[in-house]
Amino acid sequence: MGVSTGADRLIHVWGNRIGLSYVELKKRLFVYIFIIPVLGVYVFLRILPILKNFLYSFFSSSVVKPMDSFIGFSNYRELFTDSLFLIAMKNTTIFAVSVTVFSVLIAIILALLLSGKTKGGAFFETLYFIPVITPMVPVAVVWKWIYDPTYGLLNYVLSWVGLKPVAWLVMPNTAIWAIIVMSIWKIIGYNMVIFLVGIRDIPDTYIDAAMIDGAGQYQIFKSIIMPLLRPILIFVTVISTINAYNVFTQVFIMTSGPQGAPGNAVRTLVFDIYENAFRYFKTGYAASEAVVLFLIILLLTFVQLGVGAKKD
């Protein structure tokens, strides 16, 4: 390895000075040439915005100035008296809890049904997974029409059993549930596949041994499958809850236009952030709402890490 060019000589001299060999120093330079651009992009697109969000939440804002004047915790105090924010919190929580509980329950049942040597198991797995991978917008559009009061497929099917047509997305007390059902449908396949991985990891010998001991299906489920699935159950529950707290697209699509939009019946947290920031230009206030969302998600992540760690 001849030290020939000027740059090489420089590396050599410099390396000697800080106690790294020529080869090591060359490696080190390579590391920085690769990592610094990526770090730069991260700082600009992720790290700074995440930090700035906290900063903005302590300022009042105008259209041109996100940090108009420092107002301490005023934005946060206002949140607790803002009826729209409180409605959004309530709706988002109802949404997140319902979607999580039902999608996890249904997914476990489906995973159990698919876990044995089911013929065509891969076929069902694929079908159940299709809603997971399809983009949200087209799917929300078609569900909106399934729920349509006049032409909708749902009301037609219900008319077979003599039920009168319902304006699912217009009635304030059904609108959120209509969106919840659609959202459960969208993620069941995801949760099911994760449970399937967990169930298939359970050694056959455990279940065989239990069967020899005369345990019934329910007993095997309760005392072998469930305890071993616990870490996965926690993972799926937390991930589902976090994703559900960020709900926006399906709400935006399914409540827009004349078929939906029952006032604030389905206002969610991200929808409220979106409206405050981009319709009313109250970016500081929207930032304080985003901090609340951030804290909810941080709490959920700690729950997962905490409960998950206890297991080991």
């Binding site: 600009f44 992720r46 915005p49 700035k52 969000n53 903005y56 991200v270 985003a290 969302l293």
Partner: peptide, 24 residues
């Protein structure tokens, strides 16, 4: 430190920092 920093941003949902990102 850098690796944990990168990984930690994965846990922060986009919706929580989209407003400052827009302002950037």
């Amino acid at each position: 430190f850098l690796f944990i920093l990168f990984l930690a941003t994965a846990m922060v949902p986009f919706e929580t920092y989209m407003v400052p990102l827009y302002l950037s």
